[in-house]
Write a protein that binds this DNA or RNA. Structure first.
Length: 510
RNA sequence: GAGGAUGUAGCUCAGGCGGUAGAGCAACGGACUUUUAAUCCGUAGGUCGCGGGUUCGAAUCCCGCCAUCCUCACCA
């Protein structure tokens, strides 16, 4: 019914000889750039003298009074061309005010019958909210001091057949916002801005890596063995080969093969898939960055992590202290560096070298400890008692070696893994290792992990091809993984991962 | 997967002691040449998430299902 009136207008537009679906429209300027040209507008008196305009936004300023003070004259401003979506319409007889929006901002359009002519005004009468139009006209101010394009010619660029959301409240239903992200982007404040910020963050990270001669590659997303992390994979099937394949759960093992192949500094920034639950911090597909640097170690990666995050903050405007919900996160470098055991003692109230005490705490927290490796128990306590309290940013170092099968041990301290995780607001944002490059130890760790441990406790699946690659020699290296979505959440003050993923997974309807 | 909340017009929301549905915005008709969520007059618009039950009668009570959100679990 609403649509039928829009369809009727579409036919009327076509009857005027105007293509309701528009076409190429060259030479227009972005509205944000037009707003920046407000200073070019001036007031020309009948004497020909041009008077610069005062600050229209000043408190209590009355533009009408100012003009009558100056004497008779007219507003003069640059000729401009804009295009965008109609957000609001205020028809007042032979005059219509429109608010036009493009992806840089909003601006008011003045459409007067006298200025655009009968045909132009007839066209304007067929506009609906949501239509996309182009405007040629003069940039100037209205009597109320609003920067406005006084239209001289209107161009119809696209009919909107579906009515837009309510003009004041927009879309508020979170389900609709995600299902109809295209509307959310147009009609919910800050949404488009946040996704553009996401792009800036990703770009800053790439720029930081590229500047240090890292090369970006694209590994396979279809894996015969879903390795490199502890997670349940999605299973798919290749018909011609008649084999099951897994969507990748990590980028790691293929990037390391490339290190064997001589790619000394390599990274991939891409999607990984984990067949796990959905929550405000988890989406089944998410974006991961993994970086490997030959002849570095986990400390090299710590410095790099900090550099990338600071570069991203720089790209967003450089405030180190950033709001995140009710909290403030202070990214002022250097980020704190604390050991796993220190934090365990501090937050869990248990001596890190007291397996019986740790088991007691774990049992209290509801974990059956019988038959579990002491370090699995310890890590459970860490995850339950410590992680949520790490407001950070804090690099946690010196993890128990036995829960880190892909990590090199500290020389002289075989029980300590050369690893860090970066925690911010209780979220694990980055994870890095001094990478294990001893193929025999790697194979043995795969096996011990697989033996006697239920699958969900296993940190790795045997990958004999990967072990064979290691036998050919992988340089000692630092490796890093960064959860891009979570980093974007923290830097753009988003409380849910669904606010930083354009199309988060939803159950299909109908 | 478990618990809680929500689902009423295109959108934002009222109503709900069981008696057959309401506002604002959007739409349609009309007035208005400097409006700012324009204003004013008028009109139209709904299987009240889906299915079943109780009842003379259900949007309202009961049961089941679906979807979303929140919390928890798995995980990053």
């Amino acid at each position: 019914m609403h649509e039928s009136s829009r369809r009727h207008k579409l036919e009327q537009i076509a009857a005027l000889g105007v293509d309701p679906w528009g076409g190429r429209f060259d030479g227009r300027q972005w509205i944000g750039d037009l707003r920046a040209r407000a200073g070019e507008v001036c007031y020309r008196l009948e004497t020909g003298a041009e008077v610069p305009l005062p600050d229209m936004q000043a408190e209590g300023f009355d533009f009408r009074a100012w003009k009558s003070q100056q004497g008779a004259g007219e507003m003069v401003g640059p000729k401009v061309r804009a295009a965008g979506r109609i957000m609001l319409q205020r028809p007042t007889g032979k005059l219509v005010f429109l608010n036009l929006r493009d992806w840089t901002g909003d601006i008011q359009i003045f459409v007067g019958k006298k200025q655009v002519g009968e045909a132009g005004f007839a066209l304007a009468g067929l506009f609906d909210l949501g239509d996309i139009i182009g405007v040629d006209g003069q940039l100037a101010f209205t009597n109320t001091g609003e920067l406005t394009i006084f239209a001289e010619q209107l161009h119809f660029l696209c009919k909107s057949l579906a009515p837009p959301p309510e003009k004041h409240h927009g879309l508020t239903d979170p389900e609709l916002r995600q299902r109809m992200r295209y509307l959310d982007l147009v009609y919910t404040d800050g949404v488009l801005e946040r996704f553009l910020q996401r792009t800036k963050i990703v770009h800053a990270i790439r720029a930081t890596l590229d500047a240090q001669q890292f090369v970006e590659v694209e590994g396979p997303t279809l894996h015969a063995i879903a390795g490199g992390a502890a997670a349940r994979p999605f299973v798919t099937h290749h018909n011609a080969l008649d084999i099951d394949l897994y969507l990748r759960i990590a980028l790691e093992l293929h990037l390391k093969r490339l290190m064997v192949g001589g790619m000394e500094r390599v990274y991939e920034l891409g999607r990984v898939y984990r067949n796990e639950g959905i929550s405000p911090r988890h989406n089944p597909e998410f974006t991961m960055l993994e970086v490997y640097q030959a002849f570095g170690n986990y400390e090299t990666m710590m410095d790099l992590t900090e550099q990338m995050i600071l570069a991203a903050i720089d790209a967003l405007g450089g405030e180190y202290r950033r709001p995140w919900g009710k909290a403030t996160v202070d990214f002022t470098p250097p980020f704190a560096r604390r050991t796993y055991d220190e934090l365990l003692a501090e937050h869990a109230g248990v001596a890190p070298d007291d397996p019986a005490g740790l088991a007691r705490v774990a049992e209290e927290l509801g974990m059956p400890t019988a038959g579990k490796h002491p370090d699995v128990v310890k890590n459970f306590v860490f995850e339950e008692r410590v992680e949520a309290r790490l407001t950070g940013p804090v690099f946690v170092t010196d993890y128990p070696a036995s829960i880190c099968p892909l990590t090199k041990r500290r020389p002289g301290h075989p029980q300590i893994a050369e690893r860090f995780e970066l925690f911010i607001q209780g979220m694990e944002v980055a994870n890095a290792y001094t990478e294990l490059n001893d193929p025999d130890l790697q194979e043995q760790l795969f096996r011990t992990q697989l033996e006697g441990l239920p699958e969900e406790d296993s940190m790795a699946r045997m990958d004999t091809d990967f072990v064979r690659a290691l036998r050919h020699g992988m340089p000692p290296a630092g490796g890093l993984g960064v959860g891009i979505d979570r980093l974007v959440m923290l830097l753009t003050n988003a409380q849910s991962i669904r606010e930083v993923i354009l199309f988060p997974l939803l159950r299909p309807t109908e």
